[in-house]
């Protein structure tokens, strides 16, 4: 099942609705990096609230996804990792180094908002 990607201002929100196969994940990766360019987005939020497992392939793909999006000029925030998922990830030694993770969608939007303001202030100064 493809992941719906919503556009909200200069952000893209990928809201995962059900467990994903490896192929779904790769499709999401390509789709997101393509749309970042098309919409000139500055931020991407990937909402993983519904996932009750994040295996090594998924965490690696999320890492590469964030890196690809960064190279395309946007920032990635992963939101909604559940306590059990977080715990099993660290136990398995899976990391999301270099990727911003925040509690939920609201926090994610707030984070991108802060980044935007920092960018504006920087450009203004």
């Amino acid at each position: 099942m493809p992941v719906p990607i919503l556009k909200q201002g200069d952000c893209l929100i990928a809201s995962i609705q059900s467990a994903l196969t490896d192929a779904d994940l790769l499709e999401l990766r390509d789709e997101l990096s393509e749309r970042v360019g098309r919409y000139r987005s500055k931020g991407v939020i990937i909402d993983v609230t519904v996932l009750d497992v994040l295996d090594s392939f998924a965490s690696r793909t999320l890492r590469t996804m964030a890196e690809m999006i960064r190279l395309r000029g946007a920032e990635t925030v992963i939101v909604g990792i559940q306590p059990e998922v977080a715990f099993s990830m660290v136990q398995l030694g899976l990391s999301l180094d270099g990727v911003t993770t925040v509690l939920d969608l609201e926090e994610g939007l707030a984070h991108l908002d802060r980044s935007r303001r920092a960018r504006v202030a920087h450009a203004g100064g």
């Binding site: 998922v85 977080a86 715990f87 990830m89 990391s95 509690l103």
Partner: peptide, 12 residues
Amino acid sequence: LQTVEASRLMGA
């Protein structure tokens, strides 16, 4: 360290 990392994944 695991606790720190897991909390970071949760955004704290």
